[in-house]
């Protein structure tokens, strides 16, 4: 600005032109960019943002059976939710469930993947077997486990009886039900997690191992110093996806326990479903959905902040 002072007229005109051209260009490139983004913005808008805002809106109302708003209640749905022992139980179960399933799934899958990564004769057969649960639908797997857990004619209780132990009410005992559902979930998720981890293992360059071999490194040293660090992006991806999946568990709950016994397996997504479609309280359900949204959002942010530091991208 100070430069323009001596010759105000000419320079000022130039500068205005410059500014407006710049602005025009910016608008132009912005519109261009928006045009390119339009398809995804429209899709996101219709399928994600609109439902999200609608959910927020609904959470401040009471509704009739068709989900139409009837009475504005402000934050009452939230207050009721946070004071409700059923919701507390639901949150507790959800976090416990995540704790039971995520580490177990990943550790077992990693173990299997490391084993299946060995170049042995007939390893393809084992790779197929280990990843086979990926091809089974939630419904089929749950029904299969439902029979395994049957109190009197189920396979698991027969084994227990055979070795002289008492039968366990897998799905009816509040101490066991969540574990039973977790076992089912781990079994179901194993195939997918295994496959992703195996893919990650196979993409590690073999020259790293070769030079380690030359240096005389042992098997576990290589595992700790090469395999795990090189696998970290895949592990990071698997952890994020598994956690989100665990929070959103629904199918197996619906088939195995319907949230019982005593609400111990009433995980948050099932609780939302029940509030909305069996109690027709869409307001309460929406409030719970918002809580779930915030939890997953926070978890993901934390993971990215922590993960970025630890993950080694090649």
């Amino acid at each position: 600005m100070s430069m323009t002072k001596p010759m105000p007229d000419a320079l000022e005109i130039q500068e205005i032109n410059f500014e407006s051209v710049k602005r025009k260009q910016r608008v132009k490139s912005f519109t261009k960019g928006m045009l390119f983004l339009l398809p995804s913005i429209v899709l996101f808008g219709v399928f994600l943002f609109y439902p999200l805002f609608k959910t927020m809106y609904l959470s401040f109302f009471l509704t009739n059976a068709r989900g139409e708003t009837t009475v504005f209640v402000g934050l009452q749905n939230y207050i009721e939710m946070f004071t409700s022992p059923i919701f507390h139980q639901s949150m507790k179960s959800t976090f416990l469930f995540v704790l039971y399933t995520v580490p177990t799934t990943i550790i077992i899958a990693l173990l299997l993947a490391v084993l299946a990564n060995e170049k042995l004769k007939g390893i393809g057969f084992f790779r197929t077997i280990f990843s086979s649960t990926m091809g089974i639908s939630v419904a089929a797997a749950s029904v299969f486990w439902l029979y395994m857990f049957h109190p009197s004619i189920g396979f698991l209780n027969r084994i227990l009886n055979l070795i002289g132990l008492e039968s366990i009410g897998w799905l009816t005992d509040p101490n066991w039900a969540l574990i039973a559902v977790a076992v089912t979930t781990i079994w179901m998720n194993l195939g997918f997690t295994f496959l992703v981890l195996l893919g990650g293992l196979q993409s590690i360059d073999s020259y790293l191992y070769e030079s380690a071999d030359i240096d005389g490194a042992g098997y576990f040293y290589k595992l700790r110093r090469i395999t795990i660090p090189m696998l970290s992006p895949t592990l990071f991806f698997v952890i994020t996806v598994t956690i989100i999946n665990a929070f959103q568990t629904f199918g197996q709950i619906d088939i195995l326990t319907q949230g019982g016994p005593q609400n111990t397996t009433n995980l948050i997504v099932y609780s939302i479903y029940r509030e909305a479609f069996s109690n027709y309280q869409f307001g309460t359900a929406s409030a719970q959905a918002i809580v779930l949204f915030i939890i997953i959002l926070v978890m993901t942010i934390i993971q990215f902040k922590l993960g970025e530091r630890k993950v080694h991208y090649q």
């Binding site: 049957h150 109190p151 009197s152 004619i153 019982g260």
Partner: peptide, 19 residues
């Protein structure tokens, strides 16, 4: 008392199996 929780099918299966 036989506890079959909320599952009616299991209860009927238990009855048929003589439990």
């Amino acid at each position: 008392f036989a506890n079959y929780g909320t599952n009616g099918d299991n209860m009927v299966a238990g009855f048929l199996a003589g439990d």
